[in-house]
Amino acid sequence: MSAWTRATPDELVAHLRAADPAALVHAIREASDESLVTLVHDVGRGRAVVEVVTSRIGDLAVPAQRDGVRGVVRWESGDPALAATVRFADGVVEPVTDAEEGPDLVVRGSLVQLLRLVAGQLEIAVAYLGRSLEIEGDSALALALAGLFAADGTAPLTGVPVDPRDIDPLDVSRALHGVDIDHLRSVLASGFRPVVLDEIFSRMPAHVNGRKAAGARITVGFRLTGRPDGEVDRYVLRLSDGQATVLAGEAADAVGPDDRDATVTCEAHDFLRLVTGHLSAITGVLRGQLRVRGDKAAALRLATAFDIPKAAA
C-alpha cells in the first residue's frame, strides 16, 4: 500500500489493474483509514481508484454471489470526476456510461467507503442510517451489492459473503448520533426497513437483563407505522421468567388483545431511537411518540428489562 500512495495517477492505475484480486482485497483490509485517505488524496488519484476498482468489481466479488444480481449501479464521490457506473447481468459485471443506460441505483459515499465495500468491511445499512452513505433507487440492489464480497476475517474472493442484514445495534446506536429525524424516516420507508427492524427484534432476546426481568411475565405488541404502502409492521415481544421471545407478522397477529398486557404504536424510526438509547420510553409516551393501549406500567417495565448496547454521546 505504501508504494501505491507514492505513485502517480497513471502508475496507480497500472498497479491496481495488475494487482492480484485477493492480494488487493487483503491490502485494503490491512490499511488504516488514514492510509486509504492518503491513497486518494487528490482528484487524479481518486479517479484512478474509482475507475479501476469499479471495473474490477467482478474480479473482487465472491463468484457465486454475482449470479442473480441484475441492474446498473452508479457510485458517486462528490466530484463528477469521481463517479463510475457498472452493469450487473448474468454473472457479468462491466463498466457502462450514463449515456448508455441510466442507473437503477446511485450510491453516494467516499472513496474510502468504496474500498471498504469491496474488502467486505462496509456495513451498508449502518452507513445509510448514519447518513455517511446516501442511497437512491433500488434498495434490494444495494443489499445485493454489499453481499457480493467476502466478509472481513474470511478469505478474499472465496470466503463467507458479507451478510448486509447482520447489523450490530451498538454500531447503529453510534451511527444515529446527530442524524435528523427526516433522514431516519426516509431510510425506514425504504427497502432497508425490514432489514433494520427484523435484525433489531431478532437480537432483543440476547439482551435481556436477567435481574430486571426476574419474575416478569409481560406480553407487549408493537405496531410500527411509516411504511410507504400505509401498512403496519406487527411484532409481539414476550418476557417470561427472564427469557424473551419475538413473534412477527401473522404470528404476532395470532396473539390477540386479551393475551397482551399492552400494545405500543409508533413510527418505526421512533422505535429504532428507543432501542438504541436516543429516545426514552417515558419521554416518548409523554410526547405522544409512543402510544400505549393497555397497561402502560407493563410496557415501561418491558422497556427497562433489556440492556441493548448503547453508544455514549
Score class of each variant (00 low, 15 high):
199 E>Y: 03
267 E>N: 09
297 A>W: 04
50 V>K: 09
93 V>Q: 08
24 L>E: 06
275 V>K: 02
284 G>W: 05
156 P>Y: 05
183 H>R: 07
63 P>I: 14
68 G>F: 07
21 P>S: 04
100 E>C: 05
282 I>M: 12
73 V>A: 04
227 R>D: 03
108 R>F: 04
136 E>H: 12
92 V>S: 11
67 D>W: 10
177 H>Y: 14
151 A>Y: 08
172 V>W: 02
143 L>W: 07
3 A>R: 15
171 D>M: 14
63 P>E: 15
193 R>L: 01
246 V>F: 00
273 R>H: 02
183 H>N: 01
246 V>Y: 00
45 R>D: 08
135 I>Q: 10
90 D>A: 03
78 G>L: 07
2 S>P: 03
158 T>A: 14
263 T>M: 08
8 T>P: 06
219 T>P: 02
121 Q>D: 07
230 G>V: 02
3 A>Q: 14
278 H>N: 06
112 V>K: 06
30 E>H: 09
77 S>A: 15
163 D>L: 08
102 G>I: 03
14 A>S: 15
52 V>M: 09
14 A>R: 14
92 V>W: 07
16 L>I: 11
111 L>V: 04
168 D>P: 05
268 A>M: 10
136 E>T: 11
247 L>W: 02
84 A>K: 12
298 A>K: 11
286 L>Y: 00
191 G>P: 04
194 P>Y: 05
299 A>L: 04
50 V>F: 08
185 R>A: 14
86 V>Q: 12
253 D>Q: 15
169 P>L: 12
186 S>W: 08
207 H>F: 15
141 L>I: 01
240 S>F: 12
282 I>W: 12
126 V>F: 13
50 V>D: 04
121 Q>T: 03
259 D>F: 04
271 F>P: 06
132 S>Y: 01
224 L>Q: 02
32 S>D: 05
251 A>Q: 15
107 V>F: 00
161 P>E: 01
84 A>D: 10
184 L>V: 01
25 V>F: 11
172 V>I: 12
270 D>Q: 11
199 E>P: 01
55 S>I: 10
127 A>L: 10
292 V>P: 06
234 R>C: 07
95 P>C: 00
313 A>G: 03
45 R>C: 07
101 E>R: 15
9 P>G: 00
177 H>W: 15
277 G>W: 15
49 V>W: 06
195 V>K: 12
259 D>N: 08
286 L>P: 00
268 A>N: 09
291 R>M: 03
180 D>S: 09
288 G>R: 05
215 G>D: 03
237 L>F: 09
62 V>G: 06
171 D>R: 15
221 G>A: 00
243 Q>N: 07
209 N>S: 09
9 P>C: 01
133 L>K: 01
70 R>L: 13
